[in-house]
Computed example of a mutant assay.
Amino acid sequence: MKQIINILPAGSWAESDAADQFIADYEGRHRRRIVLTLESGERVLLDLKQARLLAHGDGLVLDDDRIIKVVALPEPLMAVTAHTPLHLLQLAWHLGNRHLPAMIEEHRILVRQDPVIADMIAGLGGHIHPHEAPFSPESGAYAGRGEHSHSHSHSHSHSHEDHSSH
């Protein structure tokens, strides 16, 4: 079985050089170690030190030098919008406080469909619009970035007490 030996970031290689494609939704593209089935039916091994999101347009370099293009499937999302930029920032804080993967755009935030989150956003005065698109959320401050990876311990408290009077 062929193995992936390198990942070329989207835009850094000529997509016309792709020998095959790996097509998946967000869950299928956020991996550490798995056998991937390519569009042709060929199976290849992905074995990374830590989980990462394979972005649309990334190139997976195989040990025989072929490059496989990553294609992100569209999936049902919710586009969160607000009345003002400040209101959108406040909604972003509430979404982030729930550790939700999110795509941050200038005038909206895209999150995966979730009726509980939709009710929360509506209760905060935000608006939810159904949307279908490939989902590639922010990777997070502690995600590995090439050689500059960091670890993030969750030993800190996640209590949500009101400390405003202190």
Results as ranks from 00 to 15, higher is better:
Met1Asn: 00
Asn6Leu: 03
Leu8Asp: 06
Ala10Cys: 13
Ala10Lys: 14
Gly11Ser: 06
Gly11Leu: 05
Ser12Lys: 10
Ala14Phe: 02
Ala14Asp: 15
Glu15Met: 06
Ser16Met: 02
Ser16Asn: 06
Asp17Glu: 06
Ala18Glu: 06
Gln21Ile: 00
Ile23Val: 15
Ile23Thr: 14
Ile23Arg: 14
Ala24Val: 13
Ala24Trp: 14
Asp25His: 06
Asp25Val: 01
Glu27Leu: 13
Glu27Pro: 00
Gly28Gln: 05
Gly28Ser: 03
Arg33His: 09
Arg33Pro: 00
Thr37Asp: 00
Ser40Ile: 02
Ser40Gln: 01
Glu42Arg: 06
Glu42Ile: 04
Val44Thr: 05
Val44Arg: 06
Val44Cys: 02
Val44Ser: 02
Asp47Pro: 10
Asp47Met: 11
Gln50Val: 15
Arg52His: 04
Arg52Thr: 12
Leu54Asn: 13
Ala55Trp: 10
Gly59Ile: 05
Leu60Thr: 09
Leu60Gly: 04
Val61Thr: 03
Asp63Gln: 12
Arg66Asn: 06
Arg66Ala: 04
Lys69Gly: 01
Lys69His: 09
Val70Gln: 05
Val70Thr: 08
Val71Lys: 14
Val71Ser: 11
Leu73Ser: 11
Leu73Ile: 00
Glu75Tyr: 09
Pro76Asp: 04
Pro76Gly: 09
Pro76Glu: 04
Pro76Leu: 01
Val80Gln: 00
Ala82Tyr: 05
His83Leu: 00
Pro85Lys: 11
Leu86His: 05
Leu86Ile: 07
His87Met: 11
Leu88Pro: 12
Leu88Cys: 10
His94Asp: 12
Leu95Ser: 04
Gly96His: 07
Asn97Arg: 15
Asn97Leu: 07
His99Trp: 12
Pro101Trp: 10
Met103Leu: 10
Glu105Tyr: 04
Glu105Thr: 09
Glu105Asp: 07
Glu106Tyr: 08
Glu106Thr: 00
His107Thr: 09
Ile109Arg: 02
Arg112Trp: 01
Pro115Cys: 03
Pro115Phe: 01
Val116Ile: 11
Ala118Lys: 03
Ala118His: 02
Asp119Asn: 14
Asp119Gln: 15
Asp119Gly: 09
Met120Val: 10
Ile121Arg: 06
Gly123Tyr: 11
Leu124Phe: 13
Leu124His: 09
Gly126Lys: 08
Gly126Ala: 02
His127Asn: 11
His129Gly: 00
Pro130Arg: 08
Pro130Ser: 11
Ala133Asp: 13
Ala133Ser: 13
Phe135His: 07
Ser136Asp: 15
Pro137Tyr: 04
Ser139Asp: 13
Ser139Arg: 15
Tyr142Gly: 02
Ala143Ile: 01
Ala143Pro: 02
Ala143Lys: 06
Arg145Gln: 15
Arg145Lys: 15
Gly146His: 07
Ser151His: 03
Ser153Cys: 10
His154Thr: 00
His154Leu: 01
Ser155His: 15
His156Lys: 07
Ser157Cys: 00
His158Ile: 10
His158Ala: 10
Ser159Asn: 06
His160Lys: 15
Glu161Ser: 10
Asp162Arg: 01
His163Glu: 05
His163Ile: 01
Ser164Ile: 08
Ser165Cys: 00
His166Phe: 13
